[in-house]
Design a protein around this nucleic acid. Sequence first.
DNA 1: TCCACCCGATGCGGGTTCTGGTAGTGGAAG
DNA 2: CTTCCACTACCAGAACCCGCATCGGGTGGA
Lengths: 225, 225
Amino acid sequence: MRVLVVEDETRLAENIADGLREGPGFAVDIARDGEDALHFCSAADYDLIVLDLMIPRLSGAEVVRQLRAARNRTPVLVLTAVSETGNTIHLLNAGADDYMTKPFDLGELIARARALIRRGKGVSEPLLRFGDLEVHTGEQSVSHGGRKIELSPIEYRILEYLMFRPRLVISKRELLEHLYDFTWEHHSNVIEAHVSNLRKKLRAATEAEVLETLRGRGYRLVGRA
Amino acid sequence: MRVLVVEDETRLAENIADGLREGPGFAVDIARDGEDALHFCSAADYDLIVLDLMIPRLSGAEVVRQLRAARNRTPVLVLTAVSETGNTIHLLNAGADDYMTKPFDLGELIARARALIRRGKGVSEPLLRFGDLEVHTGEQSVSHGGRKIELSPIEYRILEYLMFRPRLVISKRELLEHLYDFTWEHHSNVIEAHVSNLRKKLRAATEAEVLETLRGRGYRLVGRA
DNA sequence: TCCACCCGATGCGGGTTCTGGTAGTGGAAG
DNA sequence: CTTCCACTACCAGAACCCGCATCGGGTGGA
């Protein structure tokens, strides 16, 4: 999953970013002010935006307003200082999805981030199921009929992303965009390679063809529901 | 978060209160004696109580006793002078959760306060058990099947922290955050080193692999319950 | 002073990810 | 139906990163 952190205080921004990378394994970009944030959002499709209210150039509130005006539905988690809580209601009405007051517990931020991403994709439970396949987003594990399947972190992320929209074709490009951040420069067959490995493991565990290739279009999960 | 500081020495009380307000941003009330403290506690639901032992009207020990008798599970952090340490053990067994001897470092008090709060409203049992492993939070000692395991202070705190949520993956970041005070600039492998030593001691004592590493995610305690 | 402990650095080992190459497959055009 | 081309699968080695063990120096307490 790809997340944008909008925060001008470098230390805090890095802190949050690292937490989101290490814990749930998100790809994270950092924007330092409101205009920056909008640029990033037009350049990439994020699964979540973590937005500080007090940022230079454009206020957090304004950022949300412009995003929503542009029909961007990405979930927004707002960070406010205690003194700003008065505006909060206002902000939620303007299109934010959740808020936390600083200082906050990083663990809780991660928990809410996960929940928001799920909700943004129309899923309410932390357990993704498709056929006999189960993905536990909390502990980042996968099982098939109760038996655990061992995946590398990247393989897990790919599968998780697909599991949010089973049966739907997902392009390689989309996978790249959502699994890596902007610091990524490589253009090779990374995705193909990992999908290949993932497919092999899934085939071994399920004894069926679950991960289908649609030539020139992408991949999708198939199978009887 | 709401914290009650029980301390009759005004200067010290204000000092602690300010530290808790500025650092982690807690809301802090101050009670000047034991009865005061109990009144405050019946009027509000605190997340933590910082309690001096030597206070007028009702001793700290008595305060804890009455609180627990009234089914109040708020974590209690006790402050003692060195000469009183003899009573401390009793106090911890009576339901206090942690203690520090005066004079103490304000940063460390904050760190411990946060740790206590995050451990939440779980029962303040002085004994943590997981499998054959027992952690006596009172005397800060560890034993395995009745045989004591000698740990250094830091090793103990790491183990204790893990024992509060056995089987759950705890990241290095979280350990750092909870065991050291918040301003931690340099990143090194302190945690890895201590975990390494701790694991060695645990392995020697239990003759089993208790402390598991999840690469890139963290550590967790495993084993049959 | 001595001792236990903690910190920070370093090299090693193992696992994960990336890359390049090759074989294979499907679609389109002839 | 055949041929050709672009795209994909899979493999194997390389590069990289993370965590482990260990050690010397520093520090604070007895």
